[in-house]
Simulated scan of single mutants.
Amino acid sequence: MIDAMGIGLIMPVMPGLITEVQGGSLAQAAVWGGVLSTVFAVMQFLFSPILGSLSDAVGRRPVLLVSLFVMALDYLIMALAGTMWLLLLGRVLGGITAATHSTAGAYIADISPAEKKAANFGLLGAAFGAGFVLGPLTGGLLGELGTRAPFYAAAVLVLANFALGWFVMGETVQDKNRRPFEWRRANPFGAFRAVARIPGIKPLLWVYFLYSVAIYVYPAI
């Protein structure tokens, strides 16, 4: 939920921040906003299977904690950015460090007995939805203090999540379920090929793709 809040917090102020950094009209800011959103999404696409495979090898805990710490630094970079290139770098780092949904999902799978898996994955989805509602609302209120305020708030939230994980979260990857890291499985195209071999899954992948396009077009606009 805190991760989703951190992403949503910055949405209300991005147009103003881009205009402040780049100058020009709101229409030009919208173009840059589209570029930044695309870069963020591409990084998530490329790094989600990498981080997921890495968590199979070294453990869920270090992957999640390192990602959270770097994400907090990323929000601070964006809070201080005075050029579009720094904002672009911030979105690259943000996309990489936010590509931990597969790792979080694997953690849920690790700790859930078979009869509770669906319910626990539902909780994960509900937490993301709640964060995405609360994030823009809070970001809009903080935006009254300036275009940089939501980024500092997002950094604080992510650091709070890091602290919670550091003290509460245990490791679930043991020798019995540890898998060596392989680039064959860690790149997104290799992951698609591996998943597509599961009988009956291709139609579900297409449905989920169209569903995702329909969902994410709204925050982009």
Rank of each mutant, 00 (worst) to 15 (best):
A106H: 04
L141V: 15
A81S: 15
P113A: 12
K117T: 12
A109D: 12
M84W: 08
P113L: 04
M84H: 10
G139N: 12
S55A: 13
T147P: 00
E144L: 11
A104I: 13
K117E: 07
L93K: 01
W32N: 02
F151Y: 14
G146E: 06
A79N: 10
P113M: 08
V35K: 01
I50W: 03
K116F: 15
L93Y: 10
F132R: 04
A160S: 13
A153C: 12
A30M: 01
L80H: 12
L123I: 15
L124F: 15
G143H: 03
L80G: 03
S67C: 12
L141F: 15
G33I: 05
S55E: 09
W85E: 15
G59T: 01
E115H: 11
A154I: 10
N161I: 01
V63H: 05
P136F: 10
T83D: 14
V35T: 05
G52V: 09
G95D: 03
L157D: 04
V70W: 07
G131F: 03
I111W: 06
L157G: 11
A104C: 14
I96F: 12
G140V: 09
A154T: 07
V63A: 01
L46P: 05
L159I: 00
T83A: 14
F40T: 01
F40R: 06
L145Q: 13
A81M: 13
L141R: 06
I96K: 02
G95V: 04
S67F: 09
G135D: 07
L80Y: 07
L80I: 11
G122M: 13
I77Y: 02
D110Q: 02
S48A: 15
G125Q: 11
A155C: 06
S112A: 15
I111A: 10
P150K: 03
A30W: 04
V133H: 09
F40S: 01
G95R: 02
S112T: 13
G143F: 05
D110A: 10
A72T: 03
N161C: 02
G140K: 11
M71H: 12
S53P: 00
D110I: 05
S112I: 07
G95F: 08
F40C: 08
V66C: 06
A79D: 06
L46Q: 08
A41P: 00
L157I: 01
G59P: 00
A119Q: 14
L137W: 06
E115L: 01
G143I: 10
Y75G: 06
P150L: 03
I111R: 14
F45G: 05
P150M: 01
L86Q: 14
A41K: 00
I111V: 15
A149V: 13
L124T: 08
G59I: 00
G131L: 07
V35E: 02
A130Q: 03
W85N: 10
L65H: 02
I108A: 12
I77W: 06
A154N: 07
I111T: 14
G94M: 01
G95T: 04
V158C: 01
I77P: 00
H101V: 11
W32G: 06
